[in-house]
Every structure is written in structure tokens, then in C-alpha cells.
Amino acid sequence: MPVDLDLVLPGAAAVWGAVVGLLVPRGAYRFSVEPEEHWRDRCPDGHLIGGWIGTARCRAGGGHVYGPSGALVATVTAVVCLLLAAATGTRPELGVWLLLAPVGVLLAVVDHKVQRLPDVLTLPLAAAALALLGVSALLPEHAGDWLTSLYGALALGGGYFVLFLINPNGMGFGDVKLALGLGAVLGWYGWPVVVLGTFAGFLFGGLYGLVLVVARGAGRKTAMPFGPFLISGAFVGLLIGAYAA
């Protein structure tokens, strides 16, 4: 009996997302430091942390759990991967989305925690997105364009750089570097998707800021992480672009 891959893929992608999501918390904890501080190499109890990938559990401390919730991160990553697979189907770029999704989740967690987007994550994300999409462009049945990915990365990165120059207090330079990778991903499905994903990110950020104003009396100078909203907006744009392609 033939297997319908379009039905199997979302479930398999969800399993992939859950497994790799469980490996995110340790890196998220180690990266969640202020810009002038070194990456964390010890758990809250002072025990040495081995490696960057894995659960945030200290074996030397009797299994003490630290960092973000592994179950929550795994669930979010699983849902993200499931939706990407459902929208993309069997096209080769799905492999790119599934490889990059955990990095996006990691960046969102770190920025939410300490309002920082580490260069060691954002710049390789952009390079990996362009390289992997370049490979996808050589495979049959792909539904995107690599040159538009490149131009999208340059356009979105350049646009965010201008915003950074205009208002450095409102736009961090980490957001500019993150925009390179997001522009590459969104550009794969064309300029309308770049615009849609960018608008969605600003919309989500604006709505969150409004909630802060209403609930906590926040003002214009209240600092808030923008990376999670840029990533969420790009995710929405990517879903729509993949589904419509």
C-alpha cells in the first residue's frame, strides 16, 4: 500500500522538532548573558557544564534542572516543525526549514531572556540559510528562487541597518544581523513574502508593546526584546509563502 508522504511528513517533522527541541535548553542557558559577560560555563550550583547541546540538567548536582523548560521548548519546536512540514510538503526546502527552526527557537529564547542576539548564532544562521537554499535550488521540485533569497537578505538587513542608524535605542544591531537570515528565508518565496513576514514581525512587536503599556504602564523608553517578534513574523510569512507556492 503506497504511503502518502504529505500525511506522514508533518508527524515526522513534529517528532524531529520535539527531539531537537530537547537539546536547545543547555545552549539557551549558556548564551543568556549580558553583552560584557562570558558565556556561562557553570550551572547555578557552580558545576561545570559540558557542551552546548543538550538538556539543562546538572548531573553533578543530583539532576538539578536549570535554564528554560525543556518540555516547553520541545513542544514549541515540534509545533513549528509540524506546521512548516504541513505548509511545505515534500519540496526540498523543507529540509532547510527543519534545520533552521531550532536555531530560530534558540535565538527567540535567548533574546527574550536577556535582550541579546549573539553573533555566533545570527551570522551563521544567515550563511547557513543561503548555503542550504542554494543546494535546494539545485534539486527538482523546489518552489523558490535563490537569487531572491540573497537579495532579500541584503534588502532586509540593509533596511534594518537604516532603522538602527535612525534610532539605535529602538533597534539593536543584533536585530540587523538577524534580519540577514530572515530575509534570506523569506526571499526564497518572493518579495511579497518578505514584505508580509516583515510586517507581521512589526505587528506582533507593536501589539506586545501595547499590552505592556496597558498592563504595566510601560513608556516609549521601556526596553523589550524585538528578536522573538521578528522570528515569529518571519515564521508566519514563511508558512503562507510555502503554502501558496
Rank of each mutant, 00 (worst) to 15 (best):
V214F: 11
Y151E: 12
G206M: 04
L210Q: 01
G134P: 01
Y160D: 05
G209K: 03
A218N: 08
A137T: 03
L150A: 15
G134V: 04
V195T: 12
V211H: 08
D175E: 09
G172E: 06
L150P: 05
F173I: 13
L154Q: 07
A131L: 15
G201H: 04
F199M: 15
F173A: 03
L186C: 04
F161P: 00
G159D: 10
Y208M: 15
P140A: 05
A131R: 13
V162C: 07
A153Q: 05
L150M: 12
E141N: 12
Y151P: 00
V185I: 15
L203C: 09
P168C: 13
L132F: 08
G172N: 05
L203T: 14
G217E: 06
W191Y: 14
G134F: 01
S149D: 08
V211E: 05
F204T: 02
P192M: 10
A179T: 06
L178F: 07
F199W: 14
W188A: 06
H142M: 02
L154P: 07
L210D: 02
A155N: 08
L186K: 05
L139G: 03
A184C: 14
L130T: 10
G217Q: 09
S149C: 01
F202P: 03
V193Q: 09
D145A: 15
G159A: 08
G152F: 07
S149W: 01
L210Y: 04
G201P: 06
L147P: 05
V185E: 07
A218E: 10
V214E: 04
G187M: 05
Y151F: 15
V213N: 00
L180D: 08
G159Y: 13
L165R: 06
L196M: 14
L163H: 12
G174Y: 04
P192I: 11
Y160C: 13
F199Q: 13
L154H: 10
G152C: 09
G209Y: 05
L210M: 13
A137Y: 11
A153N: 05
A179K: 03
G170P: 03
A215R: 14
V211K: 04
Y208V: 15
N169E: 12
L163Y: 06
A215W: 10
L147K: 01
